[in-house]
């Protein structure tokens, strides 16, 4: 299918071949870091209805390095949404100004709805607890760079698998490849949602639900850790019950394989001990840096230009 002119709503809309094409170009941008004029005549709108640091800034950096003009907002305050304008009308307006719209919103399905309204491509930068496809793209790219492959590895996805869109999208992304096994590690309250588990089953991925990382630490090649998504808990008491229920420490890592790498979409709160940052296992800051070349590759492929 390729990326040209397409919306990016879920990573499941793409094939392994699409992602490999993306990785190839991201790799190029990663080793040839400079300004380009590939998107010189384009305007990219960043419509962040929900807070963001990395995703917004890496999209902005990516667009600017490609020569595009960037417009947008970073919260509903300061826009006419505060006056009661609908999401739909805001998207219609941006569609008139920009050639691509990057949307983040707290409601699941907002990006798909935006794509139905807009004529220009819409990129989902996170819709509620559901999808975060560009995060999954850079997560998989990081693994592809670190291991030269995504297939054949044993993964543990750790943390808030219920409300975490990065975790869900990463699991979806793995189903496009051939992982050896995927452990879903979470407190019982934060298990992966039925629709996520359903995709694992449908695609025939070997998976197992576990309660603690200790059970699998010696077996895994990649540990994907996520934060408990405080902002998505309908009941604050429920959050209090699970917060701090898992923590990656130096002691835990004593039992890990030498080459085991830890990824985290960030921000982290207390789920990875800062002492872990300086170990050979920590790959989350490298991962965050790859956000720029991966998003450069994505924007270029959607427009249909290559360096």
């Amino acid at each position: 299918m390729g990326f040209r002119g397409r919306d990016v709503i879920s990573i499941l809309d793409f094939t392994r071949g699409d992602l490999e094409e993306l990785f190839g170009l991201a790799d190029y941008f990663s080793s040839n870091r400079r300004s380009y004029k590939l998107l010189e005549d384009y305007v990219v709108a960043l419509a962040f209805f929900e807070p963001s640091t990395r995703t917004r800034l890496s999209f902005e950096t990516a667009a600017k390095l490609l020569g595009a003009k960037v417009i947008g907002f970073t919260s509903e305050e300061g826009t006419s949404l505060a006056k009661g304008e609908t999401f739909a009308d805001t998207i219609r307006m941006l569609d008139g100004y920009a050639d691509m719209i990057v949307v983040r919103h707290k409601n699941e399905g907002a990006a798909l709805y935006a794509a139905e309204i807009a004529e220009h491509p819409v990129i989902n930068a996170g819709d509620g607890k559901q999808h975060h496809p560009t995060q999954a793209m850079l997560d998989l790219f990081t693994i592809w760079k670190l291991f030269n492959k995504v297939d054949g590895l044993v993964y543990a996805v750790v943390g808030d698998l219920r409300y975490g869109r990065a975790a869900s999208s990463f699991i979806y992304g793995l189903t496009l490849f051939e992982p050896e096994k995927v452990y879903l590690v979470s407190p019982p309250l934060l298990r992966a949602r039925p629709e996520v588990v359903r995709v694992l089953k449908e695609k025939g991925v070997k998976y197992e639900e576990k309660r603690s990382v200790e059970e699998v630490i010696g077996e895994i090649d990649v540990m994907y850790v996520t934060r408990v998504q405080k902002e998505r808990f309908p009941d604050p008491l429920e959050y209090e019950r699970v917060k701090g229920s898992y923590r990656i420490t130096l002691k835990l890592l004593e039992k890990a394989k030498d080459h085991m790498k830890i990824l985290h979409p960030l921000p982290r709160v207390d789920e990875i001990d800062p002492e872990v940052d300086s170990t050979r296992h920590a790959a989350y800051f490298t991962q965050a840096r790859f956000g720029v070349p991966v998003r450069m590759a994505l924007l270029s492929l959607i427009v249909g230009v290559k360096p």
Binding site: F87, H105, N107, E108, G109, Y113, G128, K129, R232
Partner: peptide
């Protein structure tokens, strides 16, 4: 049934 689904957002007419 998901209260945070965009189809349940008031005034959006999805």
């Amino acid at each position: 049934p998901n209260p945070t689904c965009i189809t349940n957002k008031p005034r959006e007419h999805v």
